[in-house]
Simulated assay, not measured.
Amino acid sequence: MTELELAVEVAAPPDTIFRAMTDWERQSEWVFGTHVTVVAGDGKSVGSEIDARTFGVSDRMRITRWDPPHAVEVEHLGRVVRGTGVFAVRGSRFVWTERLDVPFFFPLVRPLFVLMLHRSLQRFARFAEEYR
């Protein structure tokens, strides 16, 4: 199991940060190479499912915790990506945590993966600060 946690300061109120981070269909505006769709439920409640397609690889997730404006937790259901993810708002910080069972080759791609997440968080801060 691998754990990653990255955070970014956002100049926006917690409820705006929460709404921006859970606007699944617009996630492609800040997550590099990813397109997200809601595939079951409303995307805003426990049991809803979303599919994040990153460079053609599907990462289907089920929402297991919905606690606005504090946190959303998901269970990764895919063959490649398994584990849990948490998007949390802590004051003016957006914190992205992943606890993943990763493929054997993950140590080779980890630096690029972390760089991609870091850049995505920087883009998220701008996205959330302008979110409407």
Rank of each mutant, 00 (worst) to 15 (best):
D59K: 11
R110V: 02
V80S: 02
I50Q: 00
L112G: 10
M1V: 09
R60L: 13
F18I: 04
M116D: 15
F55S: 13
R79P: 05
T97Q: 09
L6E: 13
G41D: 02
E73D: 07
R90A: 13
G56E: 06
F127C: 11
R93G: 11
A12W: 03
M61W: 04
E75R: 11
G56R: 07
T84H: 08
A11F: 06
R65H: 10
L117K: 14
F127V: 11
A40I: 04
S28N: 15
M21H: 02
D15Y: 07
V10C: 06
V10D: 05
A88R: 06
K44N: 09
V74R: 06
F104W: 14
F32E: 15
M61T: 08
R90V: 15
F106P: 00
H35E: 14
E49C: 04
V102D: 01
S45Q: 11
V31E: 14
H70P: 11
H76E: 03
H118G: 12
E25K: 02
L4V: 09
T22P: 03
P13F: 04
R82M: 09
P107M: 05
F94L: 09
A20D: 03
F106D: 00
F124N: 10
G47Q: 06
V57H: 04
D67T: 09
Q122I: 12
M1L: 13
G41N: 03
G33R: 14
R119N: 15
E98A: 08
A52S: 09
T22K: 06
F106H: 00
D67K: 08
V31K: 14
A20F: 06
V86C: 12
V109Y: 02
W96R: 03
E9M: 12
E5M: 08
A128I: 10
Q122Y: 13
V95P: 04
V95W: 09
V95Q: 09
T2Y: 04
W30L: 14
A20M: 05
A11I: 08
S48Y: 03
A7G: 12
R123W: 15
G43K: 00
L112F: 14
M1H: 11
M1I: 11
P111E: 10
E49P: 01
V38Y: 01
R82F: 07
G43T: 00
R53N: 09
D101N: 13
V74Q: 05
P107I: 08
V72L: 01
V95F: 12
S28P: 12
F127H: 14
F127E: 11
A12I: 00
R110E: 05
V80H: 06
L115N: 10
G83S: 05
W66L: 01
D59C: 14
F105V: 11
D42R: 11
G41S: 02
V36P: 01
V109G: 02
R65W: 04
V72G: 00
G56L: 09
V57F: 08
T97E: 08
V102F: 02
T16P: 00
I17V: 04
R90Y: 09
F124L: 10
R53I: 12
V114A: 14
V57N: 05
V114T: 12
L6A: 11
F124Q: 08
H118L: 12
L112R: 12
T16E: 03
H76T: 01
P103I: 07
F124G: 10
T54L: 07
A71L: 00
A40V: 03
V74D: 08
